[in-house]
Design a protein around this nucleic acid. Structure first.
Lengths: 154, 154
DNA sequence: GGTACTTTGGTGACATGTCACCAAAGTACC
DNA sequence: GGTACTTTGGTGACATGTCACCAAAGTACC
């Protein structure tokens, strides 16, 4: 390791701040989302990812790649969401192994109802608290980190 | 709601970037930590929190407050860590309900061994990728968000 | 010191996520 | 078209986290 072994006090402060923001923000957004719409963050992510695609459908493996989840997790989670009527699985034309996860009408309705309150929550607890410069810095630095982690941003 | 209903494209880009950085960084740090030291992030957080206190001990409830965990979660998790010899529970003098979670010698040794590699991982994947200004912006904005969320930073 | 209320931590049932493994289908190449 | 290999998605066992609930102890106040 050619890098310094410890964090400077500025670095440590920023790192702890980031971690704490991350935890608190997560908790708050999850609380708001559950009380406003009865959805978990996982549910919301699945629904919103699907709603942004053509035909409101994705192969299970692609959905997993978008969400950065294992296929196993997607398989289990969508099975539960299917029980609740939010998605269905359909066969993939041309690949008999394939499983398409498709938004139902109810799923689409659910995400459309849930989105405005969720966006408001994100604004209230994060976006509206940042200056233009901070927002720009967050954008730039996060995309740099993503790139280094090979995260082929969507 | 007096706020705008949607995010502008700059805001949306920053928000998605933040979320993706958060997920990728978590996965990478957890992977590094597990392969370097055999610890989960939860284990690491418990050990490092305790190691920073006087006497390397904290009442269960205080530990929960530091970690932003439920007492139930701390109870379950420390029971498992006790099995592995990393912590023990002791009675609290002066409060017969109380449970002190105390780092064992092995727990202290474990966190001391684990810390340098973890710090290096944090540097490599985040800190060293940021400019001075970005680091300062991250510090400032995260503490502002924490404050609004009533998160009485430690 | 008795009564009502609060705090603390634990527990078991259940929800969610991970891991190892598998079967079926697809692909490459002869 | 047969053989070896890869990809896809599912499954069950298990690890981890959440939730509702409880018992025991502590506190306040008369």
């Amino acid at each position: 390791m050619t890098e310094a072994r410890w964090l400077t006090s500025d670095e440590d402060r920023a790192w702890r701040g980031y971690r704490r923001m991350r935890s608190l923000l997560d908790l708050q957004l999850a609380r708001d989302l559950m009380s406003d719409s009865g959805l978990s963050e996982a549910d919301y992510d699945v629904l919103s990812t699907l709603s942004e695609t053509d035909g409101h459908r994705l192969r299970l493996r692609e959905l997993a790649a978008h969400l950065l989840w294992s296929t196993s997790r997607v398989s289990h989670h969508t099975a539960r969401m299917q029980q609740r009527g939010l998605v269905v699985r359909e066969e993939t034309p041309g690949d008999a192994r394939g499983s398409m996860v498709v938004l139902t009408g109810e799923g689409l309705h659910t995400i459309r109802e849930a989105a405005p309150a969720h966006v408001a929550s994100v604004r209230r607890h994060l976006i509206d608290l940042l200056t233009k410069k901070e927002l720009a810095a967050l954008d730039t630095l996060s995309h740099r980190v993503i790139e280094r982690l090979g995260g082929a941003a969507r």
